[in-house]
Design a protein around this nucleic acid. Structure first.
Length: 451
RNA sequence: GCCCCCAUGGUGUAGCGGUUAGCACGCGAGCCUUUCACGCUUGUAGCACGGGUUCGAUUCCCGUUGGGGGUACCA
């Protein structure tokens, strides 16, 4: 089996493209086949080297490797020209100056059941002659057969007037030359396929097997775009998702196992994937489920590995202890800093609401008691266990509910009401820093009469 | 407009003529609990509609409706 992923470098790699890459990769790895990466850059006006770099970078991040390529489609120009000349000689291709409007006018005149057929004018764009009669059938691994009657097809333009070949022509030749056996691509190409099949036919060549996978839409069922949040691989990365979680999630968009398994590491996906099982209807991108899945993968990482990832993500280091106590509260790498950044950067501002609720007179009273307990805790070791014991003592001693003691501490240390476990946080901060912050809070955060 | 594809809860899916229609996310309730989470228990919600075929349709066929893709000298 030989498959290929053939993105066009006219923009960033979007989620749909990433899934197409993943499906090709999974199928190739599943079958011990070969994956070729080809950059479809025949649209020289819109293709840029920056976009190529961005796509390669996205694939690298996703950890989807390829066996051959990346090849540039324009790199095959010589071959394209040779085939073009051959088809002209064979009478399968002619040149016409007809424009898109001319084609429209032609169809308006002749009705829907007559595709555009031009005359050879010796100049203009190169069009492939479509037989007037008959039909072209697309055999698809996912959808079965789709029939396109030739009367509905216009003679497709396969090269511009200046000779530069177009996608539908180049892709057929390149897949043929690369001996691609299975073309797995988005459903948006289904209508293009008969045109490509006609090229194979004109060449007397055997076409590959096709598998058109459904598109991915936004939560509203419309085309996925930036306003839906993360829409490109780059944005997923910046949002703090793990590539392994993204692979798992993307695999589940349009594909599923027959036994309800949802969480599958990549090797499991490789073992189970079968493009023929892919769904026919489009899927919506549900970031909530990705978040959930990502949280699972985060908690599955070792503290060392997660720390490494968080440090890469935040560009900070020495985060180990804070990461360790934050692990089960994060769904994305991005969640870390808002949750535990205060451990390293201190309290920049106290949440007004939190102060009002937890650092009122009674709260400050409890905080002072807690301060004493912390100051005297763990003569041998300033550990979570020692702090637990000391602070539980305060709870009992004052006859308060635990929250009444713990929340003021939390506000004093973090500035807000959400943080990792309080004993853990204190232990990571250390005695000196903890006491310093409590004192600062008692002094600054309140506005009560006893401040 | 024309061509083509698609249709199981809000979302992703399992199912492949006979099931109490399963699982996951989300949402609700409860438990756990120092916040937030995690975890556990539990509840909510679905076969778009109408015709066929069949003893029997979520499942097969046709139509309708709805959604999507294409209709470029883009890919």
């Amino acid at each position: 089996m030989r498959v290929r992923f053939a993105p066009s470098p006219t923009g960033a790699l979007h989620i749909g493209g990433a899934r197409t890459a993943l499906f090709n990769w999974l199928q190739a790895r599943h079958d011990g086949g070969t994956l070729l990466l080809r950059i479809e850059d025949t649209d020289t006006e819109r293709s840029t080297p920056e976009n190529v770099e961005q796509i390669l970078d996205a694939l690298r991040w996703l950890e989807l490797d390829y066996d051959e390529g990346p090849q540039s489609q324009v790199g095959n120009t010589e071959r394209h020209q040779q085939v073009l000349q051959q088809l002209i000689a064979d009478g399968r291709v002619y040149r016409s100056t007809a424009t898109g409007d001319d084609v429209k006018a032609y169809k308006a005149e002749h009705g829907a059941d007559k595709g555009f057929r031009g005359e050879d004018q010796g100049e203009g764009a190169y069009r492939l002659r479509v037989p007037d009669d008959g039909e072209t059938v697309v055999h698809d691994l996912i959808r079965g057969d789709t029939t396109f009657r030739h009367v509905h097809l216009d003679d497709p333009v396969i090269a511009r007037a200046d000779g530069r070949v177009l996608y539908n022509f180049a892709v057929a030749i390149d897949d043929l030359d690369a001996r691609i056996t299975h073309v797995i691509r988005g459903e948006d190409h289904l209508s293009n396929t008969p045109k490509q099949l006609l090229v194979y036919e004109a060449l007397g060549a055997e076409p590959p097997v096709f598998a058109h996978i459904p598109l991915i839409h936004g939560p509203d069922g419309k085309k996925l775009s930036k306003r839906h949040g993360a829409a490109s691989v780059q944005e997923l990365r910046e949002a703090g998702y793990l590539p392994e979680a993204v692979r798992n999630y993307l695999a589940l968009l349009g594909w599923g196992t027959d036994d309800d398994t949802t969480v599958m590491a990549t090797d499991e996906l490789v073992k189970r994937f079968d493009v023929a099982r892919v769904q026919k209807n489009p899927a919506r991108f549900d970031e909530q489920k990705l978040r959930w899945l990502n949280g699972l993968y985060i908690r599955d990482l070792s503290v060392e590995e997660l720390t490494k990832r968080v440090e890469e993500f935040t560009g900070r280091d020495g985060l180990g202890p804070a990461v360790e106590i934050s692990r089960e509260k994060m769904q994305t790498l991005h969640d870390f800093w808002p949750l535990a950044g205060f451990i390293h950067d201190g309290v920049s501002a106290y949440e007004e609401k939190a102060v009002r609720k937890w650092l009122d007179d009674a709260g400050r009273e409890n905080l002072r008691a807690a301060r004493e307990a912390i100051a005297g805790a763990g003569e041998d070791a300033f550990t979570v266990e020692a702090l637990d014991e000391a602070l539980r003592g305060v709870v009992e001693g004052r006859g308060e509910k635990p929250g009444k003691i713990f929340q003021p501490i939390r506000v004093a240390l973090s500035g807000g009401t959400i943080s990792p476990g309080i004993f853990e946080t204190i232990a990571v901060l250390g005695r000196d820093e903890t006491l310093r912050r409590i004192d600062a809070a008692l002094e600054n955060a309140g506005s009560g009469p006893d401040a």
